[in-house]
């Protein structure tokens, strides 16, 4: 039995998630956006772990493992896309890619 109240963990997850959201919305550099996305993933994983610990089941950690896998694949593909973008547009500005305007 741990002595940490579960709500605190969830609260921490919520705070981290919101901070990551701010980062996604504020930063223009695509690398920072990806980093903030990682922060949000991490926060979600924290929530799962806390839930799993609360109920004493391993499902939370397994979910976290799957999230990890997902994050890894996503980062791989995402960074590949960033490289392509840099090659074509010579910039990492997310707003430069606005061909879908209108």
């Amino acid at each position: 039995m741990t002595t940490i109240p579960m709500e605190y963990g969830i609260l921490l997850a919520a705070i981290l998630f919101s901070i990551g959201l701010v980062g996604v919305l504020v930063r223009r550099n695509i690398m920072f956006i990806l980093m903030s996305l990682e922060v949000m993933f991490n926060a979600a994983g924290l929530a799962f772990i806390v839930a799993g610990s609360r109920w004493g089941q391993g499902d939370g950690q397994i979910m976290f493992l799957l999230i990890l896998t997902l994050a890894a694949a996503e980062v791989g593909v995402g960074l590949g896309l960033v490289l392509q973008m840099y090659r074509r547009f010579r910039t990492l500005d997310a707003d430069a890619l606005s061909g879908m305007r209108g």
């Binding site: 039995m1 741990t2 002595t3 940490i4 109240p5 579960m6 709500e7 963990g9 806390v50 799993g52 610990s53 609360r54 109920w55 004493g56 089941q57 391993g58 939370g60 950690q61």
Partner: peptide
Amino acid sequence: DVAAGHVV
């Protein structure tokens, strides 16, 4: 409810 965690 204020619950405690378990070690898994």
